[in-house]
Nucleic acid binder design. Structure first.
Lengths: 346, 346
DNA sequence: ATTAGCACTCACTTGATTAGAGTGCTAACA
DNA sequence: TGTTAGCACTCTAATCAAGTGAGTGCTAAT
């Protein structure tokens, strides 16, 4: 038995109808709705075949048919027709991504927001991992008699700061000097290298006069450095889950929301391949995501893949629409980062 | 008709029972459970009185009684017995609040987390409004040929930074000088004043050589300054809502989650009085919060009330427990800020 | 190969019945 | 006069039976 043209047509109709309605669809309805010149009985026969081949299932004997993961996969790979973004959608994306700031964090926040608005799903955007980043500048600013702010800037422009109390007496000039020395020592080093460098010890002992001061600052310095390496995940459209019939069950909605808020979820995203990746239902290896579909895409800076964005929702999602939006967005993000916010003014 | 001792006792029993069980309670059950030596019939009579006085209601003729807002109010003001925190609870609070950092943001995040964990409710913590803050230091750091990071530190230790592209050519020394001039000009000024100062214009025209540079930086400087003035709200325990029977309805849970995520909610919190404030059900003026109770408290820095934290949940919440936790936390926060993170090490 | 016809299945709706918890009222009691 | 026992009554929630309708699978006719 093989998939002839008619079978594909029927399967296509079932999948796209089910994506819209979330209701199992029967032979009679299908025949009426998509009047393809064949009787319900014929459709029934074809459906039986498709079921045997694993593309359809039955919730119970006399319910309509429901597509299986395999059917969605075929649909995504071959059956679905490409969705052309409307003018409004395009302009909304361009407008919102038209970066006012070069700050990745805020841009990503925006990206997630647009994505969830356009797809009515839960979206996410990850800032890039900074593993390959270099330290650029360190400064220590005195705020108070015993309080200082430590500011670090990385090559990629990420800024991190931390406030701490100094328990040893110090002079402003000492801070300034220390900051200069730190900058001098660590400038151009990979953040990850600094964390493992012995240089810190040397440094501390070298500078007799300021060793106490350095001692009280270094642990926090390292700590903040570590934080700079963390990727950050922005979620948006969390509440969209409530509009989806599949999650019209309090328990399911809860599990979903807990899942995406867990750290595991970030890890899952980090470990996904680059490019636009769609995993449907039980194609997901993680047990908890078995009745979701996940679409992720990579965006690039200077042609290097650095962060990810995408959506997560029910298996029954509008794959064509969602992928179109995501593709358009990543292209536009890439551009935005390349041109470097040329349009930085009102 | 007035509230004699027995009526109060009965009311107290009803409220505390209902807080635990969420089920309307009848005379017979009450008599059995809290064996207060009077028969169900007598309790019924008293209940009828209490109902007439507006302390109890009936969901329908033959259901048990349910406390009204008025009853909760009386309960909170006079009836409930103080809850003593357990050793575990105390130590958990102290441990978690034992600030490793002096950063308000992170501390508040922690505070919200503890609060939601201990109360099983949705909690929040607000960073203080910076209206009374002063600018301390400005620096401009070159990251790239045409990219700079603007760093600002306020007296209170809040650090804000923003990255921007400079379209005019510049030298590192110019940046340094500009930063120095800006610091010199704005240091010690109230953030809000700087925003309205004419001084910017003067400054820009005074420094012929760098006016172009300044021009491209100033708008963003002002912008970031504005952001520094914003209060930030940390929410935690959002998912706790799903464990509460009152919100076992997908629609209600949704409304609740949307409410606390709206900006309005922050405004409501900002506008509340200082100290520990409890508003119960329809005591809340905001329509949307009519079937919630809100408990907020203020914490202080140097004896000055600056931020708020609290919980929001169903009217039927453990007021005694929650208020004890909140009180202990605010005290401890006050201390923590006063001593200034003395215990800043492992 | 396609289709009409038919018996059958199964979730869902509706209505009726019942059990149970609780109330309000009255009359008896201490 | 306050308290209590007794009783009729009310209302929800759970259970059950019957009916409805969309859908299926199979068979026989086209």
């Amino acid at each position: 038995m093989n998939l002839n043209e008619r079978k594909l047509q029927i399967l296509q109709a079932i999948v796209s109808d089910f994506i819209r309605s979330a209701e199992p669809i029967g032979s009679r309805t299908l025949s009426r709705k998509y009047g393809m010149g064949i009787s319900p009985a014929t459709i029934r026969n074809e459906m039986a075949d498709l079921e045997e081949m694993g593309f359809l299932t039955h919730p119970y004997t006399s319910a309509g048919r429901v597509p299986s993961t395999k059917a969605y996969r075929l649909y995504v790979d071959a059956l679905m027709e490409r969705y052309e973004l409307t003018k409004d959608e395009r302009s909304q994306i361009r407008k919102q991504l038209n970066l006012k700031t070069l700050e990745l964090d805020r841009t990503m926040e925006h990206a997630a927001k647009i994505l969830s608005e356009l797809t009515s799903l839960t979206s996410f955007a990850m800032t890039p991992s900074q593993q390959e980043d270099f330290l650029k500048y360190v400064n220590i600013i005195s705020v108070d008699a015993d309080t200082v702010v430590l500011v670090m800037v990385s090559e990629s422009g990420k800024v991190s700061n931390t406030t701490l109390k100094i328990k040893v007496p110090y002079k402003e000039e000492q801070l300034e000097l220390l900051a200069k020395v730190m900058t001098y020592n660590y400038k151009g080093r990979k953040l990850t290298d600094i964390l493992t460098m012995d240089i810190i010890r040397n440094f501390e002992s070298d500078m007799e006069a300021m060793s106490k001061l350095a001692e009280s600052i270094m642990p926090r310095f390292m700590n903040t450095l570590e934080n700079m390496l963390d990727t950050e995940l922005h979620l948006d459209g969390l509440m969209n889950i409530f509009a989806i019939p599949e999650y019209n069950d309090i328990e399911k909605a809860k599990l979903f929301l807990e899942m995406v808020n867990k750290k595991d979820f970030t890890d899952i995203l980090i470990n996904r391949d680059n490019g636009v990746i769609i995993t449907i239902g039980d194609e997901n290896t993680e047990e908890i995501m078995r009745d979701c579909s996940l679409i992720t895409a990579t965006y690039e800076i200077d042609g290097k893949p650095v962060g990810k964005l995408g959506v997560i929702g029910p298996i029954r999602m509008e794959y064509n629409h969602v992928t179109s939006v995501i593709e358009y967005m990543t292209e536009h993000l890439n551009d935005a980062f390349l041109t470097g916010g040329e349009e930085d003014e009102e």
